[in-house]
Computed example of a mutant assay.
Amino acid sequence: MDSDGFTSLPRGRHHLTREQVAASQRDRLLQSMTQAVGEKGYARTSVADVLKRAHVSRETFYEHFTDKQACFLAAYEASAERIMGVVNEALAARDQPLMLRLERALRAYLRELAADGGAARTFLLEIYAAGPAAAALRYTVQRGFIEIIDGLLEEDERFRALPDPQFACRMLVGGVASLVTGKVAMGQHAALPKLCAPILAHFRSLLDQ
């Protein structure tokens, strides 16, 4: 592992396939893009910043991505997949009560973002600086979170009895996103787990109406 925390390829002769080398290079570029954007912002981050962190050549970068934006969007998608995976894993125990599973998923989501302020800033704020395609991707990712939570809440008859349960779910997820984004924008990512209790209280109040 190198000084940036990335797993380095073996020096000299090795038995890695071309595909394994390419996958390692791509992963390093995605991690480097996430870190650089988290620290400098999307507009101020250059391809050279990413190369310096990833320890790969400019030629290698363009073998994987057409430009900075393409690399950034790929890094964003990788982050989204990781966070969605954490949330889905927390929801996997279907034998547990709905609210307990929701609490576990929310805590896992908030912990994941709180663990890395730069990545959280990239995921929640800098995505909007990368143009319309990035904003559309952000919307698609949020729709994915809405579908996950909607699928969970649909198990509760009280939720199904609401006048428009899907709209209620969009409001809830949008509200969570706004609260979390505000904390990250203020540099308070470490305090994100403290949002869990009040958010759950509002979920419960909706179901108890």
Rank of each mutant, 00 (worst) to 15 (best):
F72Q: 12
G131L: 02
L207P: 06
M33F: 11
R82D: 09
I83C: 03
S24H: 13
A197M: 00
A74W: 06
D27V: 05
S57W: 12
E81Y: 04
P198F: 02
R82H: 05
A115P: 01
G182V: 07
A43Y: 05
G131Q: 00
A70N: 03
P132V: 04
Q96K: 13
A190M: 10
Y139V: 15
G187Q: 01
T60A: 08
A36G: 01
L152I: 10
L113I: 02
G151M: 05
A197K: 07
R53D: 05
V176H: 06
V86P: 04
Y109H: 11
H202W: 12
F72I: 02
R121E: 09
M1A: 13
L16W: 07
V86N: 06
D150T: 08
Y62F: 15
C196K: 01
A120M: 00
M186A: 15
A48C: 12
A93Y: 12
A36T: 05
V21A: 10
A80Y: 00
Q25D: 14
C169Y: 04
A93P: 11
S32L: 07
P97G: 07
P132S: 06
L152K: 10
K40D: 08
L207F: 08
V173I: 11
A114P: 00
L29V: 06
L110Y: 01
V86L: 03
A105Y: 05
L162Y: 03
K68M: 00
S79C: 09
F159D: 00
E81F: 02
Q25M: 04
Q188S: 13
A201T: 12
S178M: 14
T17W: 14
V141A: 08
R158D: 04
L106T: 07
R94A: 13
R58N: 13
A80T: 00
A92M: 05
D150H: 11
P165V: 04
I149S: 14
T17V: 06
S205L: 14
A134T: 08
V176P: 11
M84H: 12
D27Y: 08
F203S: 00
R170V: 14
A23P: 15
F203P: 03
A90Y: 01
D49H: 03
F123D: 09
P198Q: 15
P10E: 04
G182N: 09
G144S: 07
T34M: 03
R13G: 07
N88S: 10
S205A: 15
L137G: 04
K52D: 15
F167A: 13
Q20H: 13
T45W: 00
L152T: 04
L172P: 07
K52M: 15
H15I: 10
T140A: 14
D27R: 11
F123E: 10
E77F: 03
G131R: 09
L124I: 01
S46W: 01
F72M: 03
T122G: 02
L137E: 10
L16Y: 10
L30D: 05
V47T: 07
T140Q: 13
E59L: 05
L162N: 02
H202K: 15
G41A: 01
